[in-house]
Design a protein around this nucleic acid. Sequence first.
DNA 1: TCGTGATTCATACGTTCGTTTGAATCATAA
DNA 2: TTATGATTCAAACGAACGTATGAATCACGA
Lengths: 232, 232
Amino acid sequence: MAEVRNIDTRERILDAAERLFMAHGYEGTSMRQITGDAAVNLAAVNYHFGSKESLMQEVFRRRLDWLNEERMRVLNEMEQAAGDNPLKPSQIVDGFFGTLLRMADDKERGGVTFLRLLGRTLTEPSEFVRTFLADEYAGVMERYKAALFKALPDVPKAEIVWRFHFMLGATSYAIAGTDALRVVTDWQIEASDTVDRTDRLVPRLMSFLLGGLRAPLPQFGSPAEDADVKVA
Amino acid sequence: MAEVRNIDTRERILDAAERLFMAHGYEGTSMRQITGDAAVNLAAVNYHFGSKESLMQEVFRRRLDWLNEERMRVLNEMEQAAGDNPLKPSQIVDGFFGTLLRMADDKERGGVTFLRLLGRTLTEPSEFVRTFLADEYAGVMERYKAALFKALPDVPKAEIVWRFHFMLGATSYAIAGTDALRVVTDWQIEASDTVDRTDRLVPRLMSFLLGGLRAPLPQFGSPAEDADVKVA
DNA sequence: TCGTGATTCATACGTTCGTTTGAATCATAA
DNA sequence: TTATGATTCAAACGAACGTATGAATCACGA
């Protein structure tokens, strides 16, 4: 086979798609915008990826494969070092969310653009992307949930799952953040803060997440339903 | 003027739009879906609202006007009762997020459908809806931020703004929740949990938010992995 | 050098989009 | 009852959408 007239046609499409899906969403981005931004022919997407849906999936797979492998690697390493002892919650949270957030500095892996795309996509339950993400995430989630159960034996498992969910939300906003934040505050605090995003954002968010994860358990009002939830 | 052949044409359109925008997003929802679901003529949206954009804005205004007035009312009431004393953080958080979450039970005000729409829209920075939301929110945000500054005089203001942001994210996910959560966990926990959403979700989320808000301040020097976090 | 398969290109297809139009239908006031 | 203005309706508009096609162009092994 003749190898590639222009190696980075695929990559250029993926980069443009990542950027545009982040900015305007999946439905809000047209093939003509993508191929225009990438400076390739309109038919190139269908030739290289088959369809717009497949392109979207490839945009995610390119980043998530690495991310979830890295999360697995970090967790394995920590558990091996700990032996039979449970990990500290701060370790687990850092392994999952810290690994994600540190992608922001890694331009080679999409940087802040991909993180924002991921954050916004998690709240857009379009069927084909949801089932795709569910598959990509299933294994990692299972392992990290198990680690948290072991680290926090006194906290009901349902409570941990909920708090994991809350942590995901806080993290998504922290990422999608700088833009969405402006919605809600006039935001004149430190204009220089766009620079040191991860330097300061990561410890800030970590404190918040751990504070939430380890908060006192809630008191449920009505006695009828306070038998606590069992996890399957 | 002749009064309305069918009073609820407008309302039926707004209800259908709210539901569909929640499920498929703004770009992902067509006029034909909306008018079809609402069982009105295709031209009715343009006749009553002018355009699709104006319809979207009206969908939000219908709910947010009440919500933000209610938030103001609650805050005024609490501050009056407190005199010169600062409010408790838990009061402020409940006034802002509790008031929002309790809308889930109020079918008269959109219930859980509107909350999910709001949650997902906050991560979709489409220009026309962002500037619109910014205006709707500006006044309330200012008041609640001021209340938090006063309640937490030892916490740097920038830190409070960030944590407010994190709380918004956790809340959005908690709302948009049940669907997005399935992305990330297989989630066979209590199928009955869709029923008592607010009964249990509110105290759960409140504990988490307060734990995060009152977490120890982050250490910026080194990556935050030293002493394990103590809860306030 | 030429032939071959991979890639790019211009162009077009059929659909669906948001919006507009002008006539038909309704409710009310005179 | 009739006139009037508000609302509904069926139909159509041009534009933009994702995708498909077949010819042109390229890189490279023989």
